[in-house]
Simulated assay, not measured.
Amino acid sequence: MKGIIFTEFLDIVESRFGLDVCQQMLDDAGVDGIYTTVGSYDHRILVKMIVCLSKITDISSEALQEVYGEALFVRLLSTMPMMDNWELPTGTFSFIEQVERHIHIEVKKLYPNANPPQFDFISKTSAQMILDYISARCFSHVCLGLIRGCVHHFNENMDIEMEPVSQDQSHVRFTLTLNVG
């Protein structure tokens, strides 16, 4: 997993919970917390930190992942260069399509060993999108937070349903329904 995910997580933990909680989380997880944005790290370290943070804050790990995903969207968006072949997204649906069609492809070009999650688009109308999230890392709640961050960015009113397809949540179906009016 790319280091930017780790560095942003630590920044978000520190800003939301303070330096003392961040340090306690690192100590409890048995990690030093030294990550670079371009490095590659085992995703299980992030899982371990989230579990430790959950114990410290008494907030479920799923809720923490969602909050993290929502904050991460804003941070990743601000660092993302616009690509020549990219249509400017006009809303959540078009943005999510661009992630799979362009951003993940560019990530794989830059980092050949990268294994970003996959989105399989099941159906789409002007008011509803159904897509499957597939990732061996099982961060579906981070994905839910990222989607919420995207919805907020585009100032849309949307219902988001998340239904596990596999028990370990490595495959989850999202149904996004735009509320118009």
Rank of each mutant, 00 (worst) to 15 (best):
L144T: 14
D132I: 09
R148C: 04
T92V: 07
H102Q: 15
H152N: 14
T92L: 04
G3Y: 06
S54Y: 08
N155D: 14
A127P: 00
Q98D: 14
E156D: 00
T57C: 05
S166E: 07
D159E: 12
P117R: 01
V51C: 14
Q167T: 08
I130L: 06
F9P: 01
C138S: 05
Q98E: 12
S126K: 13
D58E: 14
F139Q: 10
I96H: 06
A29E: 08
L77F: 06
E97C: 09
D27A: 13
I5Q: 10
F73T: 00
C22Y: 00
N85C: 14
T7I: 05
S78N: 08
S126C: 08
G149I: 00
E70H: 09
F174S: 07
R16S: 13
R173Y: 06
D11Q: 12
Y111N: 10
H171C: 06
G18N: 06
L77Y: 11
N157Y: 09
S126D: 15
D58Q: 11
C138G: 00
F121D: 03
K124M: 13
G18S: 05
G3R: 02
G91S: 02
V107Y: 15
D42W: 10
Q98G: 13
L110K: 14
G69C: 04
R75P: 05
D42T: 06
H141L: 02
V51G: 07
H153L: 04
N115P: 02
K124A: 11
T92E: 01
W86V: 13
Y133R: 00
C150F: 02
L64E: 07
C143P: 02
I130Y: 02
E156S: 00
H153E: 05
H43S: 12
F95R: 00
S170P: 00
E14R: 15
T92K: 02
A136N: 04
